[in-house]
Design a protein around this nucleic acid. Structure first.
Lengths: 210, 210
DNA sequence: ATATAATATGACTACAAAGTCACATGACCT
DNA sequence: AGGTCATGTGACTTTGTAGTCATATTATAT
């Protein structure tokens, strides 16, 4: 966590520092990102930076935190309706929220994705305790429920499917940002529905009349 | 490409340098990897390194190349039977080959995966010209054929599915190495078939009798 | 106005990186 | 043996990094 001095700063200055840092971490990986560039961009002295933050990791942690908090806000609807929605509806809402978050916060989203994909497990472990495994477990739970309800094919491998759905959630928001760039809500929903159609039904032609 | 001096080296020395470099790049990302560590591990002088390679990038390119060439060898069966196999059979063979490659060459596979996932697009562009887009295009072609044959549901979004199948190919080999660690051929095949079952049929329960 | 505490500063340290270069060693030919 | 050319070497340069610290500035309280 940043020091008190950082939170005592006037808002515009605090924002400028954060924006510069977010720019930097969106452009460069954690290790390549440079405090020197960040302080130059923010127009503060190097020494001041260390009045605000313990070290580089402290700042990075804080930004990952901001990203997580913001994304969670997009997910509240899903979280509040876990009982009322079935598995496919939940996945649909999660994907939708994920894309909306990425569209509204492209840099934060990129930082978070890079973080998840990063292979430096030491850094990861220090920053969050098995956060990904948590979301994986959520899917596993939902899948088990779905099988009990009869919604989901009992033949599937739950662990595998949970893993697939988790990694797809990153892929599809990246794909959407890169390739679709849809503007309105309808387009996003149409895209998510296409994705979900595949997860639900697969891609085999069931009407094949050979 | 390494300089001639490198290829003139006695094989054991050449191998030792390559092994050290592969170790290093498997452990660290391109930017974090250190030439100093590599030369120390290989037992050669720093100056010698630059007799063998133009620079760090030259070595990295070469290793990516080795990895690609080796993986391609695993894929020859698929490539030679593109006409005889249908879409699902091809994907099955591709996934199988991918996992086998990862199992036999865990470090090279990790380096290649990190490379694909890396966000440094400058570096990427310098090293290969749209190699991923190429494999993506292969899938797109196969999907179009599959739809024409009636194998594949014509309602799918080809670009999206091609993207998904490509990114899944990385995910599943990583998942297999991390979570399954199956020893024999049968286990790998069973795992791939489970994956393929999902892609073909989705995960919805079609026999639901609500 | 004066004293005290909080904040701002950039030159500085210590370190590690990639890449260079003058020179040393060794092989091979005449 | 002498000469030539390829290869080996590690101290060195340059550049960039994270983090420090003595000092200057500013705000606050008395």
């Amino acid at each position: 966590m940043p020091k008190n001095t950082f939170f005592n700063l006037p808002e515009d200055k605090r924002e400028k520092i954060l924006d510069s840092a977010i720019d930097e971490f969106a452009k460069y990986s954690y290790h390549k990102a440079s405090i020197n560039r960040i302080v130059k961009k923010s127009g503060i002295a190097k020494g001041s930076f260390y009045q605000y933050f313990e070290d580089k990791k402290d700042l990075y942690k804080y930004i990952i935190d901001i990203s997580t908090q913001k994304k969670l806000k997009y997910l509240t609807y899903v979280m509040n309706n876990l009982n009322r929605l079935n598995f496919f509806q939940i996945v649909r809402e999660l994907y939708l929220a994920g894309i909306k978050f990425a569209k509204d916060n492209p840099k934060l989203s990129e930082i978070a994705n890079n973080f998840v994909r990063d292979t430096d497990s030491n850094l990861k472990d220090e920053i969050l305790e098995s956060g990904i495994k948590k979301s994986n477990n959520l899917f596993k739970q939902l899948l088990t429920q779905g099988i009990d309800n009869g919604d989901i094919d009992p033949n599937i491998d739950i662990d595998l499917v949970a893993y697939v759905i988790t990694s797809l959630s990153i892929s599809i928001s990246e794909y959407f940002i890169k390739e679709v760039k849809g503007e309105d809500e309808m387009e996003i929903m149409a895209f998510v529905d296409k994705m979900l159609y595949i997860i639900e039904n697969g891609i085999k032609n069931k009407n094949k009349g050979n």
